[in-house]
Design a protein around this nucleic acid. Structure first.
Lengths: 137, 137
DNA sequence: TTATAATTAACTTGATTGGTTATATTATAT
DNA sequence: ATATAATATAACCAATCAAGTTAATTATAA
C-alpha cells in the first residue's frame, strides 16, 4: 500500500508548486493549510531536501521553496523516495523468480498489473496536480 | 499490498483446478507440493469452503475438491475474499472524498491507477492459471 | 476403535505505519 | 547581542497488520 506519508509528500510538493517560484512558504503554513501534522511536514521536507527537490532558509522570514521544475517530478518518483520501491506483492520485491512453476506464472500477472498501475502514476507530474488544483477553484 | 495469504490461496485453487474434477487432494499434499505452511493451507481452505468454492471430506482417504468452475473465479475475487477490499492507498477505502481540493485531485489518480491494476487481475481466472502451469511442463 | 483428515478458533511474533518527542542548529529582525 | 523563528536530525512509541503457530474438535474409512 502507498503510505499516507507518500501521499502527504505529494501534497506538500503540490502546495510548493502552486506558489510563485522564488517565494518561500513555511512548513507550519503548509501543515496548517493542508491539514498535515506539522512534524510530519518537517520530516518529509528533509527527505525532499536530500533529493534536491527543495531548499530551505532558516530564521525569521525563512521557509521552503521548490528548486526543481515541478513538471520533472512524477507521482511514482515521490512515492518511491518516501516509501521505497513499490511492490503490489512480496513476489515482486525479489529479483529472481521462485522455483515453483505456478508461482512463476503468477509473477507475470503481478508484474503486468503493477506496471499498469505505475504507468498511471508516472504519467502525472507535480505540475499537473498543481494546475488541476488551481483550476478547481 | 496483496498478502502472501492471498497469493497462497490462488496457488491452492490452481492446484485443485489442475486435478481431474471429482478427485480429492489432501491439504498436506497441497502444502508439500506447493511449499506452503500446512497450517496456512488449512486456514485458507476454511475461507474457500465458506465461499462454496471447495468441499472437504474428512477421515482417511478424505481431502478437498473444487466444486466451482475454475473459469468462474478470477484473481481479484480470491484476493478480496482473503485480504478484504483492495486499496492501493488509504484514501480509496473511504467512500467519501475528503475536503481538501488537492487531495481530491489525487483521488482520481489513485482510482485510475488501481483500476488499471485490477482489470489485469480480473482478467485472469484460476482456469487460466492452471492451464498455463500445465503448459509450462 | 483407531488412525487419519478436515474444521475451527485462539494465539504469538515480528514488521510496518503513522505519528510524537526531544534536541540541535541556523539566520535574522530588533 | 540576543531572543526568536525557522529548519534539521534522530530517537522513540502505540496501534495495527501480516504471517505463521498451536490446540482442540469433529467426522469417517478401514
Amino acid at each position: 500500500m502507498i503510505t499516507k506519508k507518500a501521499e502527504y509528500a505529494i501534497i506538500i510538493l503540490t502546495e510548493l508548486a502552486s506558489h510563485p517560484s522564488g517565494t518561500v512558504v513555511t512548513s507550519k503554513e503548509i501543515a496548517r493549510k493542508r491539514a498535515i501534522p506539522a512534524n510530519l511536514v518537517i520530516q518529509l521536507l528533509s527527505v525532499m531536501k536530500e533529493e534536491n527537490w527543495t531548499s530551505g532558509t532558516r530564521g525569521p522570514a525563512g521557509g521552503i521553496k521548490l528548486i526543481i521544475d515541478p513538471s520533472e517530478i512524477n507521482m511514482r518518483e515521490v512515492i518511491e523516495k518516501i516509501d521505497g520501491p513499490i511492490g503490489i506483492t512480496r513476489c515482486l520485491f525479489s529479483d529472481a523468480p521462485c522455483q515453483d512453476k505456478t508461482h512463476c506464472s503468477l509473477r507475470g500477472v503481478w508484474a503486468k498489473a503493477q506496471n499498469n498501475m505505475l504507468s498511471v502514476l508516472e504519467g502525472v507530474s507535480i505540475k499537473d496536480l498543481a494546475e488541476k488544483a488551481a483550476s478547481d477553484y
